[in-house]
Design a binder for these strands. Structure first.
Lengths: 208, 208
DNA sequence: GCAAAATCTGTACAGTGTAAAGATTAGATG
DNA sequence: CATCTAATCTTTACACTGTACAGATTTTGC
């Protein structure tokens, strides 16, 4: 059956999955700029042209990894415990978003590099859309509406505001644009100090 | 003297500038992913290895273009007429920021792709820093402080909030993440409708 | 058991960035 | 003006890249 680890056989057994994992490992170890299709093939002990059959092109493989990225991102912004307020929940989700970006910068950058991904992949679009759902629900809560209701224009704009802020913060952090503002800034400082302070400016916690 | 257009001579005359302009033109025509060092050399009618002497590497040339980008960005966020309020001024600057990103996507994306730029270039850092000055001044105005004063922590955080929001918006727009939210969304719609609406959520205009 | 389909290899090609060595020109010095 | 030196550009070359194409190998369906 060759279902077990048959890496030296002519047929790999589960090359598709192995290539995705190899790519993800490369992203983690050497970042997005360290990825090459041939490198991923080497890591899976397979010829340079092998990936083509499963993914068509480099973009096909990367799209698969980006899908996993959006799913992982969704997990990071789903809040576990019940938050005290809607704004508190928003902040928890924001922290999850940034935590994901800082923990998996290669994945995160890939997910927004349309030039590396298949432009019209339905599964990628769906995964991206699914990752927004938790933010959408919190937005509705902020407006005092039922969480599973459809977003009207005001809610859409509000969600866009939250998303832009957090995404911009994450992107600037990964671009190294904060090394000047806070020379010693490491991930912990960004997550524990700077991000909450910024969010408090934009979504102040209501006095009680 | 060969100061005049001597493109067919052995010595170009002003190859350094010609390569920068060629690169900028490629970014405008084919985007950042359309740039190659050899392509820029071809456009300047020069051999593939010629750029190396002036810029050392591809990153050196791109860094030069990124510096021009930050200078152009600074021009876009300097407000011309006097704004009615500090928040109104912030919104004008935000619009300038996004207008720049949408008008010159190749340049804009390059400016934040640290993997393509020289990591420790002093002039690039200075240009990037200079582009923040107008936002810093508006931040001070928002807090009712003298505009040329040093930013304390609160002001820094506030500026970071504004910057993150606008940068995230621009980045998401260029990533094509708004095509779902607003299928027909073109630059005009983003600039005239969506962006002002989002900013109004975060920085509501004070009642008068 | 055997044909057909799926999977992977080997080879090849055009294109990339850039290192190294040589050709050409410009500018400074006498 | 002549000549030397330094700057500038070309040529060649190399190790890569993504991927197209033809063929080898294995699995699968009948």
């Amino acid at each position: 059956m060759a279902v077990e680890t048959a890496r030296d056989a002519y047929h790999h057994g589960d090359l598709r999955d192995a290539l995705v994992k190899a790519t993800d490992a490369i992203l983690a170890e050497r970042g997005l700029e360290g990825f090459t299709l041939r490198g991923a093939a080497r890591r899976a002990h397979v010829s340079p042209a092998a990936p083509a059959h499963h993914f068509g092109s480099s973009a096909g493989l990367l799209t698969e990894v980006a899908i996993l990225g959006f799913e992982e991102l969704a997990r990071h912004i789903e809040i576990e415990g019940s938050a005290e307020s809607a704004t508190a929940r928003l902040k928890q989700q924001a922290a999850g978003y940034v935590r994901f970006a800082l923990a998996y910068p290669g994945r995160f950058q890939l997910m927004f590099r349309y030039d590396l991904l298949l432009p019209d992949d339905a599964r990628l679009a769906a995964a991206s859309e699914l990752a927004k759902v938790p933010i959408a629900r919190t937005t509705q809560a902020l407006l005092g509406r039922p969480e599973d209701a459809e977003l009207d224009e005001k809610a859409s704009v509000m969600m866009l505001a939250a998303w832009s802020t957090v995404h911009g913060f994450a992107h600037l952090a990964l671009s190294g644009k904060f090394s000047k503002l806070t020379p010693e800034a490491k991930s912990q400082h960004l997550l524990d100090e700077l991000l909450p302070a910024m969010l408090e400016v934009l979504w102040p916690e209501p006095k009680r």
